[in-house]
């Protein structure tokens, strides 16, 4: 979507146009839900947090600086909501969050799906900050400066977090013998 088109859409949202609001949510729901799902690792929680993100975005749309990009601002709000949800989960852990999900190692499962599950599990084991920075950089293609602004941290810290995230993910995959499994195939 072109930036002018997006600005027009947001202007219509600010005027209370319901159709424009619907278009805006439809346009960005995949990205927001993707980040929430990666951060929370739980479909229902991710859906709830993604909805909450859009509610806040639509409420505070007038605060968005039209000179800047919309997507990083949106993902920053989503990241904040995810961190709040994670903190809430830490305070009141549910049974589903205490039980660590294990990737199924059944032989009929394709190798690709198995690898994806292992990577997903490895991501869940990362610290929340590392995970958010890693996902924003590698999945949402945000720059270090944009992530730093979103997460309110220096750029150097973000770089360190992403490096550590990569290292820890590799260590985890090696510890799970995913690498050897692939080599053997």
């Amino acid at each position: 979507m072109l930036i002018d088109e997006l600005r027009g859409l947001i202007r219509r949202c600010l005027n209370g146009d319901q159709v424009a609001m619907q278009d805006l949510v439809d346009r960005f729901r995949g990205q927001v839900f993707g980040l929430c799902y990666r951060m929370l690792g739980h479909r229902e929680d991710a859906e709830d947090v993604a909805q909450e993100t859009f509610v806040r975005v639509l409420k505070n749309l007038h605060r968005w600086d039209s000179e800047r990009e919309f997507e990083p601002w949106l993902l920053a709000i989503a990241g904040n909501r995810c961190r709040t949800a994670l903190a809430r989960r830490m305070r009141r852990p549910t049974v589903s969050s205490l039980v660590e999900p294990l990737p199924s190692r059944s032989p009929d499962l394709s190798a690709a799906k198995q690898l994806a599950e292992e990577v997903d599990l490895a991501l869940r084991r990362l610290r929340a900050e590392y995970r958010e920075a890693f996902v924003l950089f590698h999945e949402h293609q945000l720059s270090y400066a944009q992530i730093a602004e979103n997460m309110d941290c220096p750029v150097g810290t973000i770089r360190t977090w992403i490096h550590r995230a990569r290292r820890e993910l590799i260590q985890y995959l090696q510890a799970r013998e995913v690498v050897e499994t692939r080599n053997a195939m």
Binding site: F33, V119, R166
Partner: peptide
């Protein structure tokens, strides 16, 4: 391992939010 990590990231499919996602957002708003 690095190569596998990024392969896994690409293969990992994030499920779609429910079909009534947008309506829920608008109702909540």
């Amino acid at each position: 391992a690095q190569r596998l990590l990024f392969q896994g990231l690409e293969l990992g499919d994030v499920p779609d939010p429910g079909s009534d996602f947008t309506m829920c957002v608008l109702n909540r708003t």
